[in-house]
Design a protein around this nucleic acid. Structure first.
Length: 186
DNA sequence: CTTTGGATTGTCT
DNA sequence: GACAATCCAAAGA
């Protein structure tokens, strides 16, 4: 257990783009509900598109937490978005999962049947996994979470981040090209 | 105190 | 493709 936590800390204590790339293909679940991470985005501390760009505030406080903790924020007043904290106030936004376990619960929470629509977007994924602001700041080593990094790296494609206006030219979106579970084609 | 603008999604045309 | 829904932190006055 201690080993797991330390390994996880080391994995996340690196620049966000590297972590974002290595998370593709990882298996992530909350309370046994989850799947394979197929899409991520990186935000760094000196990134104009990042919530940390203007320093620490009450909202982004969790982004300054230890590596392997999580940052959850509300988007457009409606949705929640999940981030994994990396080195120095940089984070990885989890944008899409390929559902593997707990499909029935996901369908119930999302009021959707099509598996391609259950977790294909940051807001959808949080709804399917029941992630809310109440989990903000928790550690991924907490018992309700499970995260398994594959021994073999996946074939990862990089592209431009989605839905932002600042620093929109940085290729820090990562994903599995051709996956039907992406929020948007790569 | 007031205004502004989203790291989105579902629905309608 | 266009747009409304709906919250609240951040910034400005």
């Amino acid at each position: 257990m201690t080993v797991d936590r330390e390994w996880m800390h080391a994995f996340f204590d690196r620049p966000a783009p590297a972590v974002a790339m290595d998370l593709i293909g990882a298996e992530f679940a909350v309370g046994g509900v989850g799947g394979l991470i197929v899409e991520t985005e990186a935000y760094t501390d000196d990134d104009p598109a990042s919530h940390t760009y203007n320093g620490q505030t009450p909202r982004n406080r969790a982004m300054f937490g230890p590596p392997s903790s999580i940052y959850v924020y509300r988007s457009y007043g409606i949705h929640w978005c999940l981030n994994f904290v990396c080195h120095t106030a940089s984070v990885v936004l989890i944008r899409a999962l390929e559902p593997l376990s707990g499909l029935d619960l996901m369908r119930q929470r999302r009021a959707m049947v099509n598996p391609a629509l259950l977790c294909s977007g940051p807001g959808r994924l949080c709804q399917a996994l029941a992630i809310t602001g109440g989990l903000n700041g928790l550690s991924l080593s907490d018992a309700i979470f499970s995260l398994t990094i594959p021994s073999k790296p996946s074939a990862v494609t990089a592209g431009l981040r989605i839905g932002i206006t600042k620093a929109a030219d940085v290729p820090w979106r990562f994903g599995i090209k051709g996956s039907p579970f992406l929020s948007k084609k790569m």
